[in-house]
Nucleic acid binder design. Structure first.
Length: 407
DNA sequence: ATGGAGTGTCGGG
DNA sequence: TTACGCCCGACACTCCAT
């Protein structure tokens, strides 16, 4: 049986939810994110807003300049999560092989469903219709012989799109795209390729694996070589555990107030420790992140002999790291994090003790506030949506196998 | 050679 | 006077130890 994958993407998700929840907003430029006048960016915006040149990740101040008549709304992650769960469960009626990629995306293995559901175009239309009638939301569906191409296909006809890349038409499809349409090929790599005289997918495909690897690096070289041939680089491979947890904060105004900085550091540390315990991971490396007024950003890390056992302990290590790097200049951002580099951080029966017998454990603290729980849920969810992403290492291994002859 | 640690870069949701 | 969040994983590069 020929493999068939669907990539499903909810259109302008956050903004669409706001518009279906409040019909007054339909047809209007809706911008979700920080409030105008504050530091922050656009998390999502409606297609109406996009006609003003607004797009996600744009500084909110810039968005406001371009679209002062827009309706600016805060992120209501709980509500989006709710609808996301509903939509994801609908996909389960079409195939058991649903991989949620993020809050608004899923990759479906539809191989072998034809006998039951009809050809891919038919089942794709059925899914779109089902989501629309049950939630009022529109989705874009990409159909292809592998997950990577399905992802690109879902972008191809947005919004409310449906596009299929047939077997045998992979490279022809890719040749209709710009380099910037390729997932995993960002601005910097594009600039590097431009320097090398590579400005199209076709040209990129004409480069040898060896050249690509030497010019853009081993990992990226193999990756690019794979994707321009319409092969799956494995961006949605199965496994994936959390390796790091971090919490950072941009001050409303840059500050050199050491008391304020200490207090911020402490609350960031508490949040990180809370999530460490909640997710049952035991990372041994502590790091801090500092951003200065001029946007220069630096991280400092230190590996411990055992995981920090309490927020206060994490806080004291973080403070030490800060002292090594901060000379009293105003700070724009402060972050605290933990990561597990080498040895596994998998939860097992043994881990409880390390927390239990540590001094000042979180165990004798009161229950986290409702607000804190809510934020935790949001954060955990946001992190989980990254849980199915590409491991470039595994890609490299795959490549060494499949391209061994070329090496 | 190999691998850990530390720092920074890149790409993405 | 003026922008630029928050969080994640992978990787390059360097220094260092084995």
């Amino acid at each position: 049986v020929e493999p068939v994958y669907f990539h499903v993407d909810l259109d302008a998700f956050f903004a669409s939810v706001e518009q279906t929840d409040n019909p007054d907003l339909r047809g209007k430029p809706v911008i979700i994110g920080a409030a105008p006048g504050h530091r922050g960016v656009v998390a999502a915006c409606s297609y109406e807003a996009r006609t003003f040149g607004v797009h996600s990740a744009m500084p909110i101040s810039e968005a406001y300049r371009r679209c002062p008549q827009g309706v600016y709304l805060p992120v209501r992650m709980n509500r989006y999560h709710e609808l996301s769960t509903k939509v994801m469960s609908l996909f389960g009626d079409f195939t058991p092989k649903v991989q949620q990629i993020s809050v608004d995306e899923a990759s479906l293995d539809m191989t072998g469903t034809e006998r039951l559901l009809g050809p891919p175009e038919t089942s794709a239309r059925a899914i779109k219709e089902r989501v629309r009638t049950e939630t009022g939301l529109t989705i874009s569906v990409g159909v292809a012989p592998n997950r990577y191409l399905a992802k690109l296909a879902s972008e191809y006809k947005k919004p409310d799109g449906l596009y299929r890349v047939l077997e045998g038409a992979e490279t022809a499809f890719l040749d209709t795209l710009e380099l910037s349409d390729l997932w995993g090929l960002g601005k910097k790599t594009r600039a590097r390729l431009q320097e090398l005289g590579i400005t199209s997918v076709r040209k990129l495909r004409s480069e040898s694996l060896q050249d690509l690897r030497s010019k853009v690096g081993q990992g990226s070289g193999s990756y690019l070589y794979t994707i321009v041939r319409g092969r799956d680089p494995g961006i949605y491979s199965e496994e994936r555990k959390t390796h790091s947890i971090s919490n950072e904060h941009t001050f409303e105004h840059d500050t050199a107030d050491s008391d304020k900085i200490r207090r911020t550091m402490l609350s960031l540390s508490h949040e990180v420790m809370f999530r460490m315990i909640d997710e049952e991971i035991r990372p041994k490396t502590v790091f801090i992140k500092v951003r200065f007024s001029d946007f220069r950003t630096t991280t400092v890390q230190r590996t411990l002999s055992r995981p920090p056992a309490a927020a206060e302990e994490l806080f004291s290590y973080a403070l030490e790291l800060l002292n090594g790097r901060w000379r009293g200049e105003p700070l724009r951002l402060l972050g605290v994090g933990v990561s597990a580099t080498s040895d596994t951080q998998r939860s097992d029966g043994y881990q409880g003790e390390l927390f239990d017998d540590a001094p000042g454990t979180i165990g004798d603290k009161p229950h986290p506030s409702t607000e804190k729980r809510r934020r935790l849920e949001e954060t955990v969810f946001k992190m989980k949506r990254h849980g199915n992403q590409l491991t470039k290492a595994s890609l490299l291994d795959r490549d060494k196998k499949s391209e061994g002859a070329a090496e």
